[in-house]
Design a protein around this nucleic acid. Sequence first.
DNA 1: TCGCTTAGTGTAGCACATACACCTTATATT
DNA 2: AATATAAGGTGTATGTGCTACACTAAGCGA
Lengths: 249, 249
Amino acid sequence: MIIFSIFVTTIILKTVLEPQLPKFESVFSIDCVIFGFEEGVLKILLIERNDPPYKDWWALPGYFVENNESIEDAAERILYSFTGLRDIFLEQFYTFGDVDRHPQGRLITVAYYAMIRLNGKKDLKPSSPYVKKAFWYPISDLPKLAFDHTQIFEKSLQKIRRKISYQPIAFELLPEKFTLTQLQNVYEAILNKKLDKRNFRKKMLNYGILKELDEKQQGVSYRAATYYKFDRRKYNRLFQKELSFMKEN
Amino acid sequence: MIIFSIFVTTIILKTVLEPQLPKFESVFSIDCVIFGFEEGVLKILLIERNDPPYKDWWALPGYFVENNESIEDAAERILYSFTGLRDIFLEQFYTFGDVDRHPQGRLITVAYYAMIRLNGKKDLKPSSPYVKKAFWYPISDLPKLAFDHTQIFEKSLQKIRRKISYQPIAFELLPEKFTLTQLQNVYEAILNKKLDKRNFRKKMLNYGILKELDEKQQGVSYRAATYYKFDRRKYNRLFQKELSFMKEN
DNA sequence: TCGCTTAGTGTAGCACATACACCTTATATT
DNA sequence: AATATAAGGTGTATGTGCTACACTAAGCGA
């Protein structure tokens, strides 16, 4: 109660004592690197721009942030308007602001990456009028991008490569139920190298964060693989204190 | 040569074909969390504000970015104007932009952290007119901070805790020559836990990135410790491919 | 020379990473 | 029915690095 009073008093004092100050008008944007995984290949979502500058170029989805919305909200809003998806793993990773990154003057952009499940939902109908079309590009085969978007993409890749080694982000790219081989493929695609099957399985199962399902693959012309799912409850229990290479002592 | 021609042509085409577009006017700031290490204690540099809003409050050093300077340059310039130091390890770690973080309207701020050597250089004479004074605060005993600066500080601490486990940032806080105990103290201060002396030394020396000097401590009233220095050349040679918990395979 | 204070050292057990090859299961083909 | 094909699934031996743990060495001051 006392603490609350002090808090309120502080606000009142500040309001009373500080003269009226001019209001800021900020202009800045967000850009998203949206990763998806399809047919064993890691892809990102690109859009073809409908307006200058860089009209007709491929670019990362991104747009201006409204004055009354938080950056997070803007990222979610824009992502939603491109994919129709919500509740996505979305993380800010860097802010780009080179003086000449935009022809219309210094425009800084806050970059996010997202991981989404492409459960066959391939029909992307962008609603933004400034987008001509949207397309999933394999990261190994990207076109030349508008602005500094190639640089932004590369930074995002660096970030998820590091992140995947201590956070369960790979699961975000897969369906609820997945096989160990699929999981391994995600790791291989992100890390861009082959992993040993036996060691990978041993390690993953050892973590104790996967739940084996009774279900198996259907309709494949070879031995059917067992499905697993990510056990977020167990993960949270085990890794509240986060992994760190500096262990206990 | 052909590639260069294509490049030039692209620029010319873009310039000719795109209509004149309005210029942006961005307003945004940077804030720095500047870490220093003194008397075995991890500290950050705070300033007392001389102007509203939050006049007389303690805050992180930070200011507006000029329209024609890169964010990095701004961070370096502002850091220099507070400490007189250059060529500092300086890294962007997050951008804060809550709608209500600043009373004068949405103002986003790009946050950097820096590590500096306090070789006895304690006489900080801030040159900025908007700064009343500057002071090194132990991180365990910070005052209430202006804006969302407490939140910014906490995020910076998270980041360096993670970073210290895979990058040689601890050395940035120490003088050129340091003892292993001093190094351990830095780790302990950042990670906020005690480490085992023998294991710490074994591990550090095993990395092979420290160079033992002939020199020893002077004028201490106990057994003098050997000085070491960080061998950046060796470090670069060894860790170009970066550590990663997912090793070879 | 004794006491205080910090520097400096080794070993045994354990957990985890690596390297590596074959059998199993399901379907499709003949 | 037999065979080919394709991926699923499994174990072991070795090495490396992390952990836990306690005493002696050196330098100085009283």
